[in-house]
Simulated scan of single mutants.
Amino acid sequence: MAEPAPITPQGFRALRQRYEQLFATERPKLVETISWAAGNGDRSENGDYIYGRKKLREVDRELSHLSRRMKAVTVVDPSQQPDRSRAWFGATVTIADEDDNQRTVTLVGEDEADASAGRISWRSPLARALRGAAIGDLRRVTLPAGERDYEVTAITY
């Protein structure tokens, strides 16, 4: 059985908003454009019709993907975490490397990960190493550049 795919309430809201925006706004506009273009005659050389159909397939594919993801994820509210002394899903963890460079990351679901914003996937190597860590723990992480040791300096939810 596959490991559950957790997501924060904010991440789930973002998935739902994207789905609703595509379904209620973009898709109807495309259908209208395709209908108008189809009424203009020869469809084989009608750029509006060809592009509209291609774009509609892309939108439908994304709607299908979003629908499957919303069914597959489990919403986990980090504020309800009973053990706040350790790093679990949704925790914002500050770590320091051997050179005392500090970095703050938040452990989130795969659908809401954005490394540039400090949100890393719950299944990433760094997040797996930090799972269950308490303040003061040293964790070794195997990264593409090699192994690194990190010390957990703060945990918040």
Rank of each mutant, 00 (worst) to 15 (best):
L63T: 02
A96K: 13
M1F: 10
A14G: 00
E3A: 11
R43N: 12
R61G: 07
Q10C: 02
G90F: 05
Y49S: 01
Q21N: 11
E20V: 04
R69Y: 12
S64E: 10
E62L: 10
G90T: 00
G41H: 09
Y19N: 09
G41K: 12
A2L: 01
L22Q: 02
Q81H: 03
L22G: 01
I95V: 09
Y19F: 06
D60A: 02
T74P: 00
H65L: 07
A5R: 14
M70P: 00
A72N: 09
T33Y: 00
P78I: 11
E62D: 12
R43P: 06
I95K: 05
R43D: 12
G11M: 12
P28T: 00
R57C: 06
Q10D: 14
L66M: 08
Q80W: 00
Q81W: 03
R43K: 15
V76D: 08
P4I: 13
K29I: 01
R86Y: 12
G39Q: 03
Q80C: 13
D97H: 08
R61A: 15
E98F: 11
D77W: 06
A87T: 03
D60L: 11
W88P: 03
L30A: 06
T92Y: 06
A24F: 08
Q21E: 07
D97T: 11
H65F: 09
D77A: 09
D100L: 09
P4K: 08
T74I: 15
R69L: 15
V73W: 01
Q102T: 08
R68G: 11
S35P: 04
M70C: 02
V75I: 14
